[in-house]
């Protein structure tokens, strides 16, 4: 796989810190895994940071990969845009081993990015980040009228919904009729 490997951010150093001499037991070296999104850019993430994701944590918990094996088998999340996966990785690194704050001001304010993030986070099962994202989504419509909400979130009216439903039925009917005619032609 041709890919660009990206190291972890400064919030999560790649190399484990050395234990003080006075410590009784030596620290176990931190293990790392690799993930990539739709853009194939590989992100190196510590197991500690990945614990935020119930999905990934479940996947890696029984793998017992060596560093080389992990590097050779990055987890592909091709349904997640690269920049969105980068945001998720950054968040996991920033909150590795830390209590999660009540609010997160670093979440994207752009509607498209936020919904992508929501869907990715939901898929990756990152509970705390999903909660933050949902709050952010709710904030998008704070103080807005029904018309404004409909516009911001592109919610079709009931009439538009009904028209779309009729159109879909009509199309399905035509397709079914076409298939029946084709089958009859084949039979002849």
């Amino acid at each position: 796989m041709s890919s660009t490997e990206q190291g972890t951010s400064s919030a999560a150093p790649a190399e484990p810190t050395t234990a003080p001499e006075s410590a009784a037991a030596p620290e176990v070296p931190e293990s790392f895994y690799y993930v990539h999104g739709k853009d194939k850019v590989v992100h190196k993430v510590s197991a500690g940071a990945l614990q935020h994701s119930a999905l990934i944590h479940g996947m890696i918990s029984n793998l017992g990969y060596t560093e080389e094996q992990a590097k050779a088998n990055p987890f592909p999340f091709e349904n997640i845009d690269g920049d969105i996966l980068q945001m998720v990785v950054d968040w996991c690194n920033q909150h590795k081993g830390k209590p999660t704050p009540p609010e997160d001001t670093n979440l994207p304010k752009q509607k498209e990015k936020l919904f992508d993030l929501v869907l990715a986070v939901n898929y990756l099962e990152i509970k705390e980040l999903l909660t933050y994202c949902c709050k952010q989504v709710a904030m998008m419509v704070k103080g807005k009228s029904p018309e404004e909400i409909r516009e911001i979130w592109m919610i079709p009216t009931d009439a538009e919904d009904e028209a779309a439903e009729k159109e879909a039925k009509k199309r399905a009917g035509k397709e079914a009729a076409g298939e029946t005619a084709a089958a009859a032609g084949d039979a002849k």
């Binding site: 997640i80 509607k111 498209e112 990015k113 919904f115 992508d116 869907l119 979130w153």
Partner: peptide, 11 residues
């Protein structure tokens, strides 16, 4: 897995 769309109606 499917590629996600990005508006409220697809959530």
């Amino acid at each position: 897995d499917p590629i996600y769309n990005t508006n409220w109606c697809d959530v």
